[in-house]
Design a protein around this nucleic acid. Structure first.
Lengths: 338, 338
DNA sequence: TTGAAAGCGCTAACAG
DNA sequence: CTGTTAGCGCTTTCAA
């Protein structure tokens, strides 16, 4: 009634553990008849090799950690699916860890992953610290970091950088060409790296399109629908009210959209709104949301591929540095100013 | 440069591995001075015990698998958070696995989890087969199953049953009391157990409220927004059109809501809509969505707690059978018929 | 073509 | 109070 081990198989097949191991891993020639006996014994006993025992020797667990901020942020599900898609193909399993935007909790999660000897960690939480990465790297665990930078990072981890500038620049240009002059930005919490990057990209885009970044209205939100609503309330106080707003994510953009409608504005006539992420919902609401799209699933796949490469290469694996572009998707929530 | 092992610590502290192990696990008395030496050595070397080696002996990995249909279904994130909350407190890590509603893939995922010797598996995918459960149980892995039943399940797994009847009954009663007579149902794919359960609960609720289940309009959807839209189109053909609709989940309810508005109906005046799940969005859209709420996070916590109990009890753990109730949440998408 | 034996990093009798 | 020793289930020299 206990676990069937390689020894049981060996006994049943009348061979040594060594032989069983070799037929299992095809790691040396075995006579066809013995091979058959072994295979049959395996079948009869329902034997499954213990990954744990294997890991002890191979120093590989075929597991990886995925650190995110919070699964309920609709940015993540597609990324996760992408990660899982390539992980599954290589028989890797993924530990999902939510930091809840808490650095301390993040560190604990990393330590737990280290203890479990994951082969690698994908850092995709927007709450990041160098310490987390160090903790992993010092324990020979490969690391891929998404959308975060630190001067000490280069030699420790592969990085995937999201080029927000491309998409946001397209969005702003579209707005300006549509006659908008007063364009506001609703940022994420500015203690988050990614929120700063997006805001800077926005300011740069203004400049590139002949608007004065100094004059720009920037409201700090919480990346959630509610934050968008509140931001609209503030926006609505300003006179003259901005005619367009670029939000740091789709959730806040939807918040703006809905709050504006509740306030009696007609959209997009009275206010053009641009989101960022292109979550599923963006195309499903009405008016559908114009947004700066991220290839989320691709990002997930890419991250896991890079990680697997590093694992294969081993200790001195070269660190990749990839950039993914964003693109503006025009839908119904933006319109020429009248 | 290699991993620091217990042996290194023992050497450095000038004691045996045994002693180190014992101070680590507080598993027998150790003289304070030696204890201090050991602790210092651990500190200096930055030693972390290998969970893999421990697992080989203890037959425990402090990991569990969580099988779901698809993370991008907004039902899951909160459940995941609940699971993680209690798992984290016990230093358990969670392998997240998406079946993508594919039974075969589900089985492969389970096998992979079995190979990795997870201590338990939480089955929360709506695509279930007895084979998956068997695969786990035969390998001494504890199992908790959510919202699925099978006569053979009892002695193998703990179960959490969602009592859809309570909430749906409340919803239908509310509608009937508000004067609705023609109430339609948009079900999930009827090959899914949970879709059948919800539909049956709906039919029963009709009966309990004096309506004829035989007459009921039931449209099969896909549990997504698009499915709701399509369902509305069908609904809209019917004459006289039902005055209310109960959808099998919030996503489809939103689809109905939006499609109806696009078709020129005014909501909730022309059509009352009830969802199921109470996803975050439900309270955020306007009109906000009346819905049958599930305590998702609670379900996650409960499931993980039950699993941990089973793990602690070991082999002959008693199987829990819990039921969680649902409740109707009245918002703006339903209204008295005029 | 096959096996014996050592060892991965740890725990747990059993002795002292 | 501490150490020796024998494994956990597997892979991998080294020998035959």
């Amino acid at each position: 009634m206990n676990r069937v081990t390689i020894k049981d198989v060996a006994n049943r097949a009348g061979v040594s553990k060594t032989t069983v191991s070799h037929v299992l891993n095809k790691t040396r020639a075995v006579e066809e008849t013995t091979r058959a006996k072994v295979l049959q014994a395996i079948e009869e006993l329902g034997y499954r090799p213990s990954q744990v025992a294997r890991s002890l020797i191979s120093k590989r667990t075929k597991t990886a950690g995925l650190l995110i901020s919070d699964v309920s942020n609709p940015f993540y599900p597609d990324v996760i699916l992408g990660v899982e898609e390539v992980a599954f193909a290589e028989d890797y399993s993924i530990f999902l860890c939510n930091t809840n935007y808490d650095l301390e909790r993040g560190l604990k999660l990393v330590q737990s992953l280290v203890d479990k000897s994951v082969d690698g960690i994908l850092f995709m939480s927007s709450s990041m610290s160098l310490q987390m990465v160090k903790e992993a790297v010092e324990n020979q665990i490969h690391v891929v970091v998404l959308d975060w930078e630190d001067s000490n990072l280069q030699d420790m981890a592969s990085t995937i950088t999201i080029n927000f500038e491309s998409g946001i620049q397209q969005a702003v240009r579209h707005l300006v060409e549509s006659g908008h002059q007063r364009i506001a930005h609703i940022s994420g919490p500015l203690n988050l790296w990614t929120a700063q990057v997006r805001r800077n990209a926005f300011l740069k885009a203004l400049e590139q399109n002949g608007l004065d970044p100094q004059q720009a209205v920037i409201i700090e939100g919480d990346l959630r629908i509610e934050g968008g609503r509140k931001a609209f309330d503030q926006l609505n106080q300003i006179s003259p009210r901005p005619t367009a707003v670029v939000a740091a994510n789709d959730l806040m953009a939807l918040g703006v959209l809905w709050a504006a409608r509740n306030a009696g504005l007609e959209l997009p006539r009275d206010l053009s709104v641009v989101g960022l992420d292109d979550i599923d919902l963006a195309s499903k609401v009405s008016p559908s949301l114009s947004t700066v799209a991220l290839p989320r699933r691709e990002i997930g796949k890419m991250a896991m591929r890079i990680l697997l490469d590093m694992i294969r290469e081993g200790k001195e694996a070269t660190k990749a540095q990839v950039t993914v572009d964003t693109t503006f998707v025009l839908r119904q929530s933006t319109q020429r100013v009248r």
